[in-house]
Amino acid sequence: MNHGFLIDMDGVIYRGSELIPGAEKFISKLRREDIPFLFLTNNSQRTRRDVATKLMRMGINVEEEHVFTCAMATARFLARQKPCGTAYVIGEGGLTQALHTNGYSIVDHDPDYVVVGEGRSFNFEMIETAVRMILNGAKLVATNMDPNCPTQHGLRPGCGAIVAMLETATGQKAFSVGKPSPIMMRHARKELGLATSEVTMIGDTMETDILGGVEMGYNTVLVLSGGTCRDDLVNFAYQPGRVVDSIADLCDALELVAGSAA
């Protein structure tokens, strides 16, 4: 089968700290049959190695090459826009490492960009600093615009919530690189080395995973094990190519999934 998969994680592979039944079987089947795949995440906190380690500890046998984060997509985008540029970062290790890997320096004054990702370590002083930088000409870039992040204890503010403060204070709109942006979705396809018609996006969120896949012309599969219920589908002008209860339903139907209409 000349096909590959882009797979969201939270709500598809696991919920909180619990592996979703069937996830390990599905990934093992992909590896056994040498089918290319990438885990796509809009969380910029962890490096791809950290994400792979988390998955391995949960029983999913993968390497870091199977992980593609919005931090990586953002850093690659900025490196093409302005090679060897500078950034003031509101975020954590996954984002700063990605920027360093792509030739960027992290600075605390006169940056080319203010780059915002997820994190719990930011404070209002950092917000004030970022506002002044943006008003002085730095461009505002978001790794994603997700308004919140799921945790074991419920939702917490996401990257989009932090960005909203900066947009409101400065009057400047952020440029976002993560899902559903075609920048991240196209990068991921190129990582797989496949054509548009050879890619299936599996996700649990209509506004990011499925929207991004539909806009790129990928095959799309919505799983109902995460943040979307079947009744929610009537609220969207676009629809997934296939809807299943969980990734377990895909284990014995890879060819059917690959051939589903986007």
Rank of each mutant, 00 (worst) to 15 (best):
L30I: 10
T96C: 07
S44E: 04
M1Q: 14
Y14A: 07
L99I: 07
N42D: 04
F122A: 11
I134R: 06
G103E: 13
R46Q: 13
T47V: 10
H3P: 08
G203T: 08
N144F: 02
H3F: 10
V199D: 08
G59I: 11
K29N: 12
R186I: 01
L233R: 06
L30N: 01
S246G: 06
V107Y: 00
D112Y: 00
M72V: 03
S176K: 08
A161H: 06
F124C: 03
K54Q: 09
R31L: 15
G158H: 05
A79Y: 11
G160S: 07
H109L: 09
F37N: 06
L38R: 15
V89F: 02
Y88Q: 01
D209N: 14
P157N: 00
H66N: 15
T47W: 06
E128Y: 10
L194K: 05
R48L: 09
A142F: 07
L6I: 14
G160L: 02
F124H: 01
G94H: 09
D204S: 00
I7N: 00
T101H: 07
L233V: 10
F77N: 02
G203D: 02
D249A: 11
L95W: 02
R230W: 04
K82E: 01
L6S: 02
G259L: 07
L99H: 09
I183K: 11
T86H: 10
A52F: 07
H3K: 14
S260D: 08
G259T: 15
K190W: 11
G16R: 04
I90Q: 06
